[in-house]
Write a protein that binds this DNA or RNA. Structure first.
Lengths: 264, 264
DNA sequence: GTGGACTCTCCCCCGGGGGGAGCGTTCAGA
DNA sequence: TCTGAACGCTCCCCCCGGGGGAGAGTCCAC
């Protein structure tokens, strides 16, 4: 039996943190003295403590750590861990994107953007839609687009696009639509016909990988306001040239269209 | 002038967060109506908002964001940013280390470790010591060891080593010593003679890169307890084979010695 | 038996947000 | 010109995963 201090020295977890883990039923001392409240740990709890320590270093929430520890089947358990490692990869991607954006933002010479005002008629397309979290977008997009391409096949009549609720960016969660234009939209699985409403769009083209796209959004937003307009409705993107066309990100072209209306 | 809602849509920052940034004097609205308290933002504040957004995505604390924004000189500013990116790299390293440890911990078949009980006599070495943070250790170690090697030169009589306070791991901050053994320890810069006290050490050898070393610590700790002993004093490491000897991490050998005493 | 090290609980603090109540303001359409 | 919806305001409490410190009780070796 080890006192909490000894256990702390052996696991490199602070005494405070150990108490917290006890309270959270994450790592219960082998024995708790009923009268003094003293916690005593067993040597066999060291590996568990270490697993917790590592998982916490990977920013796995305590609740998930608990779920992982309570999973007896090692296969299932390592699947849970792998899952978190995947999430870590996603975080890494976002970090990379933020770095690219930041570099572009801190660039002293921002080239002015070309914005075109365009009246877009309503049109019906093959779409997949969902309420999705900001951070899950790219994974969701990949799945949805794959399904769309399978359903539409060669009947595609233009580049793919998407429509994204502003709430998606403001509250991390919102409605998203991705679509492929086609003459007769099928209805299979998540794919179904959908109508993009007519709108007056302020359109600009983002060149290059998606990582810096938020900066272009900002520039477009500035343009909109400076031209005495206001935004109305979800932003639209059209992937004129994308990863399906070329693997060279520098050649990618993304049209960003923000529905606007004239103020005054 | 933009209302907070409009500004929110344009910058993809939530209204709540914008108010928070105002409160923190991070991003003050261009105009605040004195009677209604309504916040109004200027179009020219969009780039600033975006910079903040990206920095926050990189987990830069608001206080540091503020410092960066208030730095007028673009050179100094980008230096601050680069600094944070460096810190990000360090986080990444720790993440990688945690992943390695985790894989080793979840391995079903942990080979038993060899532990030797050794009475180490006191000895005087050339040392550099400091109170450092857990996360700054590797950088500090690199600098200290470079200084040591420059001071001692060819008079080295054995592999380098270190002694690390337990507080370093428990409270993220503690006393650390790195040393090179030599007959006549010099006194230059941070380098000075120091005496490693005699101790009874439980010694084991960690093979491979340092990333998984915490696991070996745990195994050593288990051994210590199972052999009716208790730890006393800072842990010692001796870098028998390290990056100065070979660039192949798999060949590295690190002796870990934990001062122990027998418990009845 | 005593002193110092250790441990206990309890409360408040941090950062960076989110949810919601309750109320005031704006503005476009009737 | 009125009115109601949408929007804005402040205020309070919540989340996570810890840290600091007070004040009191406990353990153990000398």
């Amino acid at each position: 039996m080890l006192t909490i201090g000894e256990f702390s020295r052996l696991t490199h977890l602070s005494v405070r943190t150990l108490r917290r883990y006890h309270e959270a039923a994450l790592l219960e001392p082998a024995v708790v003295d009923g009268t003094t409240g003293y916690r005593y740990y067993g040597v066999d709890q060291i590996p568990t403590a270490q697993v917790i320590h590592r998982l916490r270093e990977l920013d796995v929430p305590l609740s998930d750590v608990q779920r992982i520890l309570r999973t007896p089947d090692p296969g299932v358990r390592s699947a849970l861990v792998t899952d978190h490692l995947q999430r870590l990869e996603d975080v890494l991607d976002r970090t990379r994107a933020a770095v690219v954006s930041l570099r572009r933002l801190l660039q002293p010479d921002p080239a002015p953007i070309d914005v075109e005002l365009r009246a877009e008629p309503a049109r019906t397309v093959a779409a997949v839609e969902a309420v999705v979290g900001h951070h899950d977008i790219s994974a969701w997009y990949a799945g949805a687009m794959a399904e769309l391409e399978a359903a539409v096949g060669a009947a595609v009549t233009g580049p793919p696009g998407g429509s994204y609720d502003n709430a998606l960016f403001e509250q991390e969660r919102g409605h998203a639509v991705v679509y492929l234009p086609t003459a007769a939209p099928p209805r299979t699985g998540r794919v179904h016909p959908a109508t993009l409403p007519a709108a007056e769009l302020a359109v600009t083209t983002h060149v290059g990988e998606h990582d810096g796209i938020e900066v272009t959004y900002g520039e477009l937003g500035t343009w909109v306001v400076e031209n005495a307009m206001s935004v109305a409705g979800p932003v639209r993107e059209v992937y004129i040239v994308g990863p399906r066309d070329t693997s060279d990100p520098a050649a990618w072209r993304t049209e960003i269209g923000w529905p606007v209306f004239r103020v005054t």
